[in-house]
């Protein structure tokens, strides 16, 4: 499915508000400016998502399941090296690469939790419904395996590119909401009615 221009603008706005809030929390946490932005949004399949991320690419993934008006698995994905870089930059020069590896899972889970919470919050405020949100879980490995392309390759993904800018470094990552087909229908209807009200 494709979004109309209006729908796309609407979603971009929504997620930019979400990541904007996350930027604030993250910046406050590490006392340096972290800027998150959403430059692009589209609907794709899991199969395509794996292609974009790079099937053989090693990725770090934080996910939180949400249930409510519609159900989704929300994911924050960064190439593994990029996620290590983020943690390194956030912690500053005080640690060696070995220690960063040791702290990586905990730290990146926390970052993912903040970003996902903020985006889910933004989404639920917009549709004026709340979701039940599970605790974050962390996964790391080849994109193809983590996204379970073999079994769920056809499923729809609301795919959101995000840029993270920290200490003059730009790191690109992805936010994805994996939706079942019934949830996809619900989201589409919801989006249509919201946009028509604008």
């Amino acid at each position: 499915m494709h979004f109309s221009e209006l729908e796309e603008d609407f979603l971009l706005e929504l997620f930019n508000i979400g990541v904007g809030k996350a930027s604030d929390s993250l910046s406050k946490m590490v006392h340096q400016e972290i800027i998150l932005s959403v430059p692009h949004i589209e609907m794709i399949s899991i199969d395509q998502l794996a292609d974009v991320v790079g099937k053989d690419q090693n990725i770090s993934c934080v996910s939180q399941k949400i249930t409510g008006r519609f159900d989704a698995d929300s994911l924050l994905l960064f190439p593994k090296n990029a996620s290590l870089q983020i943690v390194q930059l956030m912690l500053g020069q005080q640690f060696t690469a070995e220690t960063i590896k040791e702290l990586h899972q905990e730290a990146f889970s926390e970052v993912g939790n903040i970003v996902l919470n903020a985006c889910i919050g933004s989404l639920s405020r917009m549709i004026d419904e709340s979701f039940d949100i599970a605790l974050p879980s962390f996964d790391q490995g080849r994109a193809e395996a983590i996204l379970n392309v073999k079994e769920h390759g056809d499923e729809a993904v609301l795919f959101i590119k995000i840029n993270l800018r920290l200490s003059e470094s730009d790191v690109e990552g992805f936010l994805a909401f994996i939706l079942s087909s019934s949830s996809l229908d619900k989201l589409q209807l919801l989006l249509k009615s919201l946009v028509s009200e604008l």
């Binding site: 946490m29 905990e106 926390e110 939790n113 919470n117 919050g121 974050p136």
Partner: peptide
């Protein structure tokens, strides 16, 4: 209703 994890990393 947001769940949060606050690790001790930061």
């Amino acid at each position: 209703g947001h769940p949060s994890v606050i690790s001790n990393v930061f």
